Lab assay of single mutants.
Amino acid sequence: KRRTSFTPQALEILNAHFEKNTHPSGQEMTEIAEKLNYDREVVRVWFCNKRQALK
């Protein structure tokens, strides 16, 4: 499976959402994914990886 390359704009939006809520609901992740035109699973993994990076 290929790595997803996030655009700077997408990272800005993802980081803004992460600052508000580090554990978004499934519905929220779906909405973010649709807004950014990414697969929901990609957004889920991004949040998971971001949380791990802060440990």
Score class of each variant (00 low, 15 high):
residue 47 F to Q: 01
residue 12 E to M: 06
residue 18 F to W: 10
residue 1 K to S: 05
residue 27 Q to I: 15
residue 24 P to Q: 01
residue 40 R to S: 11
residue 4 T to S: 13
residue 47 F to H: 00
residue 26 G to M: 10
residue 40 R to D: 15
residue 51 R to W: 05
residue 34 E to D: 03
residue 25 S to Y: 01
residue 32 I to P: 01
residue 54 L to V: 09
residue 22 T to N: 14
residue 27 Q to G: 11
residue 8 P to I: 07
residue 47 F to Y: 07
residue 45 V to A: 12
residue 6 F to K: 04
residue 27 Q to L: 14
residue 47 F to D: 01
residue 22 T to V: 15
residue 46 W to C: 00
residue 2 R to A: 14
residue 50 K to P: 00
residue 20 K to R: 12
residue 28 E to G: 02
residue 17 H to A: 12
residue 37 N to A: 11
residue 18 F to K: 00
residue 24 P to I: 06
residue 19 E to K: 08
residue 47 F to G: 01
residue 27 Q to E: 14
residue 37 N to Q: 11
residue 49 N to G: 08
residue 32 I to L: 08
residue 36 L to I: 13
residue 32 I to N: 01
residue 19 E to Q: 03
residue 21 N to G: 05
residue 11 L to E: 12
residue 43 V to M: 00
residue 44 R to E: 13
residue 21 N to Q: 11
residue 38 Y to I: 13
residue 32 I to T: 01
residue 2 R to N: 15
residue 39 D to E: 06
residue 28 E to T: 10
residue 3 R to C: 05
residue 35 K to A: 10
residue 51 R to T: 05
residue 43 V to T: 02
residue 17 H to V: 12
residue 11 L to G: 03
residue 31 E to D: 10
residue 2 R to K: 06
residue 28 E to K: 10
residue 45 V to G: 14
residue 9 Q to V: 10
residue 1 K to V: 01
residue 18 F to S: 02
residue 17 H to P: 00
residue 8 P to Q: 04
residue 12 E to A: 03
residue 44 R to I: 08
residue 11 L to W: 03
residue 46 W to M: 01
residue 25 S to D: 07
residue 23 H to T: 10
residue 32 I to C: 15
residue 5 S to Y: 08
residue 16 A to H: 14
residue 52 Q to Y: 04
residue 9 Q to R: 15
residue 9 Q to C: 04
residue 40 R to G: 14
residue 43 V to C: 05
residue 50 K to M: 07
residue 54 L to K: 08
residue 19 E to W: 08
residue 34 E to C: 15
residue 4 T to F: 04
residue 12 E to W: 06
residue 46 W to F: 03
residue 12 E to F: 15
residue 22 T to Y: 06
residue 21 N to F: 02
residue 41 E to Q: 06
residue 42 V to H: 04
residue 18 F to N: 00
residue 3 R to F: 14
residue 52 Q to C: 09
residue 45 V to M: 14
residue 6 F to A: 04
residue 34 E to G: 04
residue 36 L to P: 02
residue 4 T to P: 08
residue 25 S to C: 06
residue 10 A to C: 08
residue 20 K to M: 12
residue 48 C to S: 14
residue 21 N to W: 02
residue 39 D to W: 02
residue 25 S to H: 15
residue 43 V to S: 00
residue 7 T to V: 03
residue 33 A to E: 01
residue 39 D to N: 08
residue 46 W to E: 00
residue 3 R to T: 08
residue 13 I to G: 04
residue 20 K to I: 05
residue 47 F to N: 00
residue 30 T to E: 05
residue 28 E to W: 02
residue 5 S to K: 14
residue 3 R to G: 11
residue 2 R to E: 15
residue 40 R to V: 12
